[in-house]
Design a binder for these strands. Structure first.
Lengths: 232, 232
DNA sequence: CGACTATTTGACTTAGTTCAAGTGCTGTGG
DNA sequence: CCACAGCACTTGAACTAAGTCAAATAGTCG
């Protein structure tokens, strides 16, 4: 199964061949989306959702002073708004970071899934629970860990998620985020993000440049970050 | 309807009289629980969940260095583990803070709800989405706001949630948390929590002692906190 | 009363921010 | 192919919010 959306769901639940077929079908009509395009706006009505098939996106909330908190990021296979039957408005803005391919899913399609397939309903429920778990982990990370450990934890999580979709090899991956993005995820400034990377390099845990990261000591990084292995 | 669980769900979705009856029935056999009792343990298996009918509880994650992050708190009407059909282990530990009354819900009961009542399924889905929204807001709060504003935001949220269950009058409420608890929710130290309260008092936004809070200027507090009104 | 826990305050240290100036890519137009 | 503009990253120096440590105060419960 090469479809990243279905592959992701299969990590959490079983799906019949029929259900898998339904999902693949729903996701087969894709659109190419430019970088920095808004897919869903905080507080805006949305009728259905989207599945990200390639590329990267972020979910953020804005404060009135102009600060933003990136509350989550999306890698291929991730989705939003598939439970939108229950909310009129989105909790956060979703925007692409890179050129992406996306399948938009109508409300009717989702309703059909829920009416006809308990397996798909269960899969969507699982994905929402996973999401909650990510958010709890992110809150714990931002609330409790000092800068370098916080960055290390974030990189461990990113590594796991990229590995799950085949975008990582031996601890090496392309970094889809700018330092500003990372700062807005981890609750510090761009300058501090830069210094936290410096620190991890000094400690011999990783090498990186503007566009990529090579984790030279994966276990060391996990240990330094107190990365919760049961979580991912 | 005096049942806080049903009342909470009705804030988000419609439920037929039949569905309401089912929920009330499921929640009618209650247990009295002592303060500081664990209801659910992080990483532990759980077969079913609980509904909190009176009292307060917190949900927290522990780090290996002994720090904890309180990721959420529970007021009467809140629940956990009702979607546990899909996860083997809990994401966080739940423990009571005060003497509480709790109804434990078996897996069989939940499965029955999901099989027989789309309305209840929708309600449970809504509660999980609400939960996610709280977590996003909490992450944004901890990630972006300086101490006094962060505390102010937290108090605005607490005020809203207590009002919804009738535990607030005119900006006054009993504080179920110690300063240590608040510190562990907001990502600062006990000393800093104390100083943040001092600051809000200096600003004339509230009065408080160990056990209660009187918000003397609700609008001022919301404004100071940049409290997102659409969210609650 | 005495033990215990929660809160408060002061003095000091430090992690992280701010400000400002740089470097170094990368894409674009001439 | 080069000049230049723009953005991301980097560094240093000064500053500030928050943490740490330690001690005092104040409720609470047996």
């Amino acid at each position: 199964m090469t479809n990243p959306f279905v592959r992701k769901l299969l990590r959490g639940v079983d799906l019949t061949a029929l259900d898998q077929g339904r999902l693949v079908e729903a996701v087969s009509r894709t659109e190419d989306i430019a970088p920095h395009t808004v897919l869903m706006r905080e507080g805006g009505l949305h009728d259905g959702g989207y599945v990200l098939l390639s590329g990267f996106a972020i979910c953020h909330k804005l404060l009135t002073n102009g600060e933003r908190q990136i509350v989550a990021y999306r890698v291929p296979g991730d989705a939003d708004g598939l439970h939108g039957i229950h909310t009129e408005s989105a909790d956060y803005t979703v925007a692409t970071l890179t050129p992406s391919t996306v399948a938009f899913i109508s409300r009717g399609t989702i309703d059909g899934w829920l009416a006809d397939s308990p397996g798909i309903a269960r899969a969507l429920w699982w994905s929402l629970l996973t999401e909650r778990n990510y958010l709890c982990a992110a809150l714990t990370n931002v609330g409790q860990r000092p800068g370098p450990q916080r960055l290390a934890y974030f990189l461990c999580e990113l590594l796991s998620r990229l590995r799950a979709v085949g975008l990582e090899r031996n601890g090496s991956f392309d970094l889809p985020f700018t330092y500003r993005d990372i700062a807005d995820m981890l609750g510090f400034t761009e300058v501090h993000a830069c210094r936290a990377f410096n620190r991890l390099r000094e400690l011999g845990l990783l090498l990186n440049d503007r566009t990529s990261v090579v984790v030279s000591d994966v276990d060391g990084l996990k240990c330094f970050a107190d990365f919760d292995l049961t979580c991912y």
